[in-house]
Design a protein around this nucleic acid. Structure first.
Lengths: 329, 329
DNA sequence: GTGAAAGCGCTAACAA
DNA sequence: TTGTTAGCGCTTTCAC
């Protein structure tokens, strides 16, 4: 900036004003400065500007990753959520800093906030971090989480209607004559727990009680769908339906079922969750519960900005929708 | 920091030294300061520190996106590359700023560098941006690109061996008796062009010439695989093999073939590219060319750091590998 | 072992 | 319309 000032024969103040399109600069001077700046590929140093202005237009998107398994974040839905967030935040003029933290040290998610790097944090995946998240919120870290609303929650969540999702998925299987429906998902995770609740409700409406033998605590890691089907086989469980808590899991399960010689949907009906892009092209095309990804990204950003603004923001529940294709009919 | 200094009864200089583990601080003073800092959840303001130190440990990962189609980056392989980069960069103590730019304004990719936000740029996807990338490199922007090496290239690329990949895929189909092999990919893109070259070479080794009727300029966008199969049908082209330039495309193509009543691999053998996570669980399990994602992420980061260091960095070619499953046998 | 002072690149009173 | 000056939060000589 000093260089430009020198070359333009003005002070840095004038350059600053010109670059910020302040009206208080002579038309001609302004043009000279702008031309100079663009010919030098000069851009205002954002770090210095932020320091001076005490502002910041960067948000952290944090994905917890399971370091025990050194598992990359690989769930396509969560990954695409990251993409959706990036889009929405760009639109709003925010930059997005992506960081990955150990699932058991989610506190670390606030580091970029504490050090003034970002103005807020979006956590993609609530996991088992309720307490840590509450602690962060208490410390005043503006944090918004993709996940389920929990009692005594001090942070804001945005999530799909998991109970309804679980209910619709199960109802669909029941409506197609399935009576022994396996539930694949880790109810230790709030979202899966709620989907399970929907599952139980749907069963109850048919006068059925959930059979513990049919419940497998499959994680969201790839491969878990396969493992779950093996586990059911090991238990000798009889089932004609599967409700999986993610499409990835459902696809793996279908693959494993096929390996067992069981046809989908003829022998076993399968319903997934998320409606990832590939779901429609899988074989058989996957019946699944759609989560509103774009709306979610929008809601997460809106909530975060409001939080940053100091407003209390209620958690929100986005509608989910059953997409009927062929895997359960 | 001033607060801590006051509370500890020392000057900010001392606080700074203590926080930076400078040996020149009294043991006891240091401890008092550190305790104070952690009890206040204080972290050094990185912006100010960077300004003062003239340093920066942030790298931009830029994904070009096709604004004409408003298409999100959705290719699972590229998305997972982003994940791999995030891992490697974290390991090295770098933060990662993700931005999306219009495919036709890739110049904008250097904005975070010009404004001092990042020390370098990794571009995930070379596309048709050769000239713009050369221009960026000429301006001195440290930029490293996932893509193919091109003549007169001033920037550094890291890429898989596309020619070998194309050759192996095609050879595999040929070895299984396929003679009319469709090529699905846009040869306007450097990587697809090289894969096509491998395809042609493999055909030539069998004394076959490529049939233009069998070449469809399918993009990397989702749905293009489906479109390509429709296009082949429209042309009335006869084929018994398909080499698709991405797994996503291959999966879509298989779906479309099935809709046409053609079995894979019985009627048509299909080979994909990338070896995304789902490839093994697709039906039929996808035979594909594996791209070394983790090695690629590592190489990209190493190249970028060397570039930032001012060293000239040669482009590199990573080995690809044919993963034989069931879709082409 | 510690503090005072200067300066990283920028902006905004305030003065001219 | 422009320049001077101070200061954002930090580190680091230099002096004590």
């Amino acid at each position: 900036m000093a260089d430009i000032a020198r070359l333009a024969g003005v002070s840095t103040s004038t350059v600053s004003r010109a670059l910020n399109h302040s009206g208080l600069v002579n038309q001609e001077t302004r043009e000279r400065i702008l031309e100079l700046a663009s010919s030098l590929n000069y851009s205002i140093n954002i770090g210095a500007q932020n320091l001076r202005l005490q502002q910041n237009r960067t948000v952290a998107a944090v994905v917890p990753l399971d370091k025990s398994t050194r598992q990359q974040l690989s769930d396509p839905f969560l990954l695409s959520m990251l993409g959706g967030l990036a889009d929405v935040l760009s639109e709003q003029g925010f930059d997005i800093l992506v960081s990955r933290v150990d699932a058991d040290q989610v506190d670390a998610a606030s580091a970029p906030f504490d050090s003034g790097r970002v103005v807020g944090v979006v956590l993609i995946g609530q996991g088992r971090h309720h307490d840590q998240l509450n602690r962060m919120a208490t410390r005043g870290v503006p944090v918004v989480v993709w996940g389920a609303q929990l009692p005594q929650q001090l942070y804001t969540t945005v999530g799909g209607d998991n109970v309804a999702g679980g209910r619709m998925a199960t109802e669909h299987l029941l409506a197609h004559g399935r009576r022994r429906i396996a539930f694949l998902g880790d109810t230790g995770l709030p979202e899966a727990a709620l989907r399970h609740q929907g599952y139980v409700e749907a069963l109850a409406a048919y006068g059925l009680a959930p059979d513990p033998q049919l419940q497998v605590a499959a994680s969201f890691l790839p491969g878990s769908g396969t493992d779950a089907v093996h586990e059911l086989a090991r238990r000798g469980a009889a089932y004609d339906g599967v409700f999986a808590c993610s499409d990835l899991m459902a696809m793996h399960a279908i693959h494993a079922l096929r390996a067992e010689g069981r046809a989908v949907p003829a022998d076993v009906g399968v319903v997934g969750y998320d409606d990832i892009e590939l779901a429609a092209y899988f074989h058989p095309p996957l019946t699944t519960v759609r989560q509103p990804r774009d709306a979610a990204a929008r809601a997460l950003v809106a909530a975060l900005l409001a939080r940053i603004d100091g407003q209390p923001v209620p958690s929100s529940l986005l509608p989910t929708e059953l997409v009927v294709r062929a895997s359960a009919a």
